[in-house]
Design a protein around this nucleic acid. Structure first.
Lengths: 137, 137
DNA sequence: TACAACCAAAGAGTGTAGTCTATGGTTGTA
DNA sequence: TACAACCATAGACTACACTCTTTGGTTGTA
């Protein structure tokens, strides 16, 4: 995740005219799924008005970042809708610093809760293992 | 969650003739969803052969336990199919002692992996929080 | 006996997150 | 110029986990 954001400041935008397949190769997300994300409003390609022969979408480095963010956010358990909000928070200036921090804190709390639940489950399974070993069930 | 398993040994089976609505009240799961779980093979009601006028399902305390287990397991992120396996391992005699232990060990490993993933995500979010605090994005 | 509350079964509908197919046009290389 | 590889759009299809509706029968209480 952090890598994604560091890139934002280190990378020079060398490629602002990627087509969908290049995007797919760069991110490992299929073109189909990228179109699905575009339809869902997570990313947005641009059309080149000067080109009349086709209406291909062009994507830039920021889109690659966003897709990498999507991969990470999905891994944490964000839904597409939440990721949409997240991208808004990240890339638009709709949210204040405090709002961004609150957003992240909220996710930290829910992660802690999940970890607590998993540990509880571990304890339980261990207990049950003992019962199995003692032929209690 | 632990409570569920302690119950298994402490509780006397005082109610073996619950109908679906009582089950729903006891667990907070709707009758609809309970029927869905029954159709999915997670729980199993019994029919009273001596009653000819209806074919209502009757449930016992073990079903309540199972439903409570389902609630907890879902909260941790188990799918219905996984919970089905889990319940088999718990309540059936389909599996040998060694198989049960292997199953439980497998669950412990996957829980550890999940916890590791969540901790990694926490670290990433914390790092990003710092970036926000430092106005780096 | 009227009637509300309950029961089962079948199947349709919902939301999420894709995944695939079909169609038809475009681009680049031999 | 043939043709593979690419592109967009629309819409069908999938899996998961419900959720609701319909239909028709049963039970309990006033």
């Amino acid at each position: 995740m952090v890598v994604v954001f560091l890139k934002k400041f280190i990378f020079v935008k060398k490629n602002t005219k990627m087509l969908i397949n290049e995007l797919a190769k760069r991110t490992g997300i299929t073109a189909h799924t990228i179109r699905f994300y575009e339809k869902s409003g997570l990313i947005k390609g641009k059309r080149d008005e000067t080109i009349k022969s086709n209406n291909y979408f062009h994507y830039d480095e920021e889109t690659v970042e966003k897709l990498e963010l999507i991969i990470d956010a999905k891994a944490i358990g964000y839904t597409i809708n939440e990721i949409s909000e997240l991208i808004d928070a990240w890339y638009s200036n709709k949210f204040s610093k405090d709002e961004k921090l609150a957003f992240l804190d909220e996710k930290l709390v829910s992660l802690d809760q999940k970890i607590k639940d998993l540990k509880e489950m571990k304890k339980l399974i261990s207990q049950y293992k003992e019962d199995v070993l003692d032929d209690k069930c």
